[in-house]
Design a protein around this nucleic acid. Structure first.
Lengths: 333, 333
DNA sequence: CTGAAAGCGCTTACAG
DNA sequence: CTGAAAGCGCTTACAG
């Protein structure tokens, strides 16, 4: 690997000068600049970021902790964060916690980012606990994006899951349904989906509806609970089924087709997220979460924290999405 | 930030000893080990990966260059690579080239990874040219995954796009279609999709069919060419339309519905990728690319190269996917 | 079994 | 405008 030393020798200057040219520190003769750049180009020199990071005591590296890259909502977030970060002149690196049981491995991913001495950290994975982040709050600015965050010392930019649940519940109630099944994953499986599900149930009950709460605590098994809801639909004990994610709604739709149930004839269905491509063709009634706003605002907050540590008061901002109508939500049977 | 120095002081040993305990170099007294671990825990010490990287002259960092995280196929690859990498005891960091015009920015992402002195590089983005990678081939093992690769010095693990095109073409021809529109993006827009499209066209022609090649070179504008194909369908000059990705097929389906065309009544449709969730509910006939195999094999090859540089002969392996039947492919009108 | 010392590749005051 | 030198936080021969 070619080092700065090699460039210096080739350009007949000192390492200090090469460094100044590359960093862009002003007092350098134009002729020298050119000599150095030529040597850099000819040798194909790429500065060692480790040495740079060690030497300057600051970092423009931003770490992003994403949960499951195969979830389209995370993919979109990742992509948007990437754009936002680079428009702020920062660099993004991403780590994915290996998703086995629980949060153990998320911690490993966290330590990896911290080891790289990122200048700021974006946490979008829901399962890692705020208390796990606590020990590092003094050394690096942390912003939660798109995940439920209540910690008094961690900035949060996320979705208004309570309102989302209420919005969807209203639509279902307004369609005339009186008896509704709601799938509610355990909080440790997905905090966001848990929150959504609970909110749906609470608001339906608030409007006097009959609610079947179908709780699941199977991690990585989205099919859990689907069979129960199929039964409720078959027996006519529920005329609508609400899911806390489009993914789960799709699984139900598949199962319903397989079981010969008509949607929305026998059972209406709603999802939540609105990110998966082609949902409109499926006709799923859902809610589009405002990923764009959350990503943009999240970086904005992090950037401020990085340039002025401790300057900003901790806030938990929440953004609300929009209902997306679809043929899977019909009038009550 | 707490340094090794602080740990050493707290444990009453030298930095060398702390390092030995943490790295796991054998000759250390059990009592000392415990003292050190206690100090590490109490101080919340996370080793500085930059300093480590600088000091040991090797790296277990693997870099992954992904193109567009919002593409579900990349998301799945990312996720699978993550699992494979960590099962090999390596660490993964991901960089996303900011996608503006052309490949300029992909180079920046590449340099970023190289700057971090990754021990190996996985390149999955199709637009970066093999010649751009050339200068670095001597310093770091590079494996192309899931992208078309012909370079004699770069290992490739990818999809058999030619066969994929042929498989889909065969299905369409067998359904009795005689006149087919094929969307073919320019190679610089997507090498893989270009290859697929060309292969479809060539194989349809080989079976004596009438092929309308609809070529597009609009980057980031998947709608390009859709209108032309709608016209062909409307005029009855094509009874089937083949798309090089599910994404584009979905866009067409949407447009066809909007235009009052029946699928497959007026026009049959096929896609390619098979990754998007809920495709079965849409009924899209497509081909599922073997992302799992490509990811697993890609890491395997990279890992071998990292542990035995220059030991392996360069190969270009290709994996073939499976046709996924769907209602959008019907008999010719 | 443990410590003092050199070195990894940079950046940045400090002199000149 | 430029160079010599110290220092960033580690690891690893080398002594002891």
């Amino acid at each position: 690997m070619v080092r700065m030393e090699d460039v210096a020798r080739a350009a007949n200057v000192s390492r200090a000068t090469v460094s100044r040219v590359l960093v862009g520190t002003p007092p350098v003769a134009e002729a020298t600049r050119e000599k150095v750049f030529r040597a850099v180009r000819e040798l194909g020199y790429v500065p060692n970021a480790m040495a740079q990071g060690l030497s300057k005591r600051s970092s423009d590296l931003v770490g992003l902790l994403v949960r499951d890259p195969r979830n389209p909502a995370y993919g979109l977030l990742h992509s948007l964060v990437q754009v936002a970060v680079s428009s702020h002149g920062l660099e993004l690196i991403t780590a994915v916690p290996h998703w086995k049981e629980g949060a153990e491995d998320e911690l490993a991913a966290l330590r990896r980012m911290l080891g790289l001495r990122v200048g700021g950290l974006l946490v979008s994975t829901g399962v890692i606990r705020a208390t796990d982040l606590e020990p590092f709050l003094d050394s690096v600015p942390v912003v939660s994006v798109g995940r439920v965050e209540d910690h008094p010392r961690i900035h949060g930019v996320s979705y208004n899951e309570d309102v989302h649940g209420a919005m969807l519940a209203d639509k279902v109630a307004s369609a005339g349904h009186r008896s509704v099944a709601v799938l509610i994953p355990a909080a440790w499986v997905s905090t966001a989906e848990n929150r959504r599900g609970l909110s749906m149930a609470v608001h339906l009950e608030g409007r006097g509806l009959d609610v079947h709460r179908v709780e699941t605590n199977a991690f990585g098994q989205p099919e859990a609970g689907i069979a129960r809801i199929l039964d409720l639909a078959r027996d006519g004990r529920a005329t609508a089924a609400m899911f806390p994610s489009d993914n789960k709604a799709l699984i139900f739709l598949r199962a319903a087709h397989g079981a010969g149930l008509a949607v929305p004839g026998d059972i209406s269905v709603t999802g939540c997220d609105g990110i998966i491509q082609g949902l409109d063709l499926v006709g799923l009634a859902t809610l589009r979460i405002p990923v764009e706003q959350v990503a943009a605002r999240g970086i904005e907050v992090l950037e401020r924290l990085m340039s002025d540590p401790g300057g900003t008061e901790v806030r938990h901002e929440k953004f609300t999405g929009e209902f997306v109508p679809g043929a899977t939500l019909g009038p009550a049977a």
